[in-house]
Simulated assay, not measured.
Amino acid sequence: MNIETLTARLHALESRMAIETLISGYANAFDLMDSDLLQTLWHEDATLDLPGFGAGANPGEILAMAQRNWKKMPHMHHWMANPLLHIDGDIATGTVAADCLFHDLTQGPVQVSGLYHDRFECRDGQWRFTSRRFELHFLTPLANWKPTAGPEKFERN
Rank of each mutant, 00 (worst) to 15 (best):
H77Y: 13
K71N: 12
T47A: 08
A64L: 03
L63H: 07
W79K: 15
W70F: 12
G60S: 13
G52T: 00
D49V: 08
N58Q: 10
K72F: 03
L37T: 10
N69G: 10
W70Y: 12
D49S: 11
P83V: 04
S35K: 13
G54M: 00
A27T: 06
M73W: 01
L50H: 05
M65W: 02
R68I: 05
P51G: 02
F53R: 02
M80Y: 11
K72G: 02
E61P: 06
G54W: 02
A29P: 00
L48H: 04
T40F: 05
S35I: 10
N69M: 11
G52P: 01
N69E: 11
H75K: 14
P74Q: 04
L32D: 11
D45Y: 09
P59D: 02
G54D: 01
K72P: 05
Q39G: 12
D34M: 07
D45G: 03
I62M: 09
H75R: 14
A46P: 01
G52A: 06
G54H: 00
W42M: 12
M73E: 09
D36N: 14
A66I: 00
N69R: 08
Q39T: 14
L38Y: 00
D36H: 15
S35D: 14
M33W: 11
P59T: 06
L41R: 02
